[in-house]
């Protein structure tokens, strides 16, 4: 056992952090700056990080889930408003189905509650759901029932619909016929989908860790400059203790999230999903509390649209909802230990 990041992984982390710091939104006003967002999108495209899960030799991914998680964490910390999760999840699905890589920018289509992949009755049948993380995306992958499991189908994605997350828009898809992928693919078994889910949940954890780290940084810098009673509010013990708890929550979350990412490529699907469930229950519970603390530390300003704190919270709320939050994952943990919950996952 040696869970230190390798020097390549550290370099990747630094590069992703630089990208997010240089081109991510530094204020709510900057969220509306299309030119900046386009630069971020171009820069991310140039790194090739959206293709980390495309097959390299054999069917192994170009990079491990740990590397994908490193990028996700830094993009989350910097509130990067460009698609990464969507294309990465789509690439992972194609890889698992041994399908050829996407030719257009692609995400995945989930059920409206975002708890699982949307399923069509078959190719040609109508397909509905919510496409996530659709910035610059024109197509979404969904499942269609076939003998022996599920196959991948696509639906076109247009426009955006309101999302709780201001950095990652979604799009409703209602009823176009599902299109069979060109070329061959292997039907996905329940275990394939379990393994994919473990990977996805691990990535949402990484994003949560990043988002909450960013929220703690934001709140700490505000606590150092905002003065009341003639002194920085960061010198008040109750403010210090809230921020200390927030920092501690981030550290615990990092440890579980790192393990979930490692497990996604290393352990059998059931164990990987258990590692992911442990991580998601922990990170999601922590992230909401940490982002709420960031709002509280900002006082009145924290409750205005202009303060970035709610952008962190909103991003955390979406990452939490994706593939299930605290309760759903505690149920998974319980079911795996045969003490209740819902065997096989979500209700």
């Amino acid at each position: 056992m040696d869970v230190r990041l390798s020097s390549e992984q550290q370099a990747l982390r630094d590069a992703a952090a630089r990208l997010a710091d240089d081109l991510g939104p530094k204020s709510v006003a900057e969220l509306g700056d299309g030119a900046r967002a386009a630069k971020l999108d171009t820069a991310l495209e140039a790194t090739g990080w959206r293709e980390l899960r495309t097959p390299a030799d054999g069917n192994r991914p170009l990079a491990s889930a740990v590397e994908a998680a490193i990028v996700a964490e830094e993009l989350g910390r910097g509130l990067a408003d460009t698609s990464f999760l969507g294309p990465t999840l789509a690439a992972e699905l194609r890889r698992r189905a041994s399908a050829p890589p996407a030719t257009v920018p692609e995400t995945v289509l989930l059920t409206p509650d975002l708890s699982r992949l949307a399923v069509a009755g078959g190719a040609g049948e109508p397909c509905s759901g919510t496409a996530i993380d659709v910035q610059g995306i024109t197509s979404a992958l969904a499942l269609a029932e076939v003998a022996g499991g599920h196959e991948l189908v696509t639906v076109p994605v247009y426009g955006t619909s309101p999302s709780r997350d201001l950095t990652r828009p979604a799009a409703e898809v209602s009823g176009p016929p599902a299109v069979r992928l060109p070329g061959t693919q292997t039907p996905l078994s329940a275990a394939d989908i379990e393994g994919w889910t473990a990977f996805v949940v691990a990535l949402t954890c990484a994003d949560l860790v990043g988002t909450m780290r960013g929220a703690v940084e934001l709140a700490c810098s505000y606590a150092g400059v905002r003065q009341q009673y003639g002194t920085a509010i960061g010198s008040f013990q109750s403010v210090q203790h809230m921020l200390a708890d927030a920092h501690v929550s981030v550290e615990g979350s990092r440890s579980v999230a790192l393990h979930a990412a490692w497990a996604a490529d290393t352990l059998p699907a059931g164990e990987a999903l258990d590692a992911a469930a442990v991580a998601k229950a922990y990170c999601a519970r922590a992230a909401r509390a940490v982002c709420e603390t960031a709002i509280q530390v900002h006082g009145g300003i924290g409750n205005t649209w202009e303060c970035l704190a709610h952008v962190h919270l909103r991003r955390a709320l979406l990452s939490t909802q994706l593939l299930g939050g605290v309760g759903a994952h505690l149920d998974r943990v319980a079911a795996r230990r045969e003490i209740g919950g819902v065997p096989g996952g979500l209700r």
Binding site: S255, V278, Y282, G327, V333, A334, I339, G340
Partner: peptide, 21 residues
């Protein structure tokens, strides 16, 4: 009870992994 024990499992597992780190 089930939720509380599941949460205890999660917390204990967190510490195990944190110590590995």
């Amino acid at each position: 009870n089930v939720r509380d024990v599941a949460w205890a499992v999660v917390e204990a597992e967190m510490l195990r992994l944190h110590v590995c780190r």
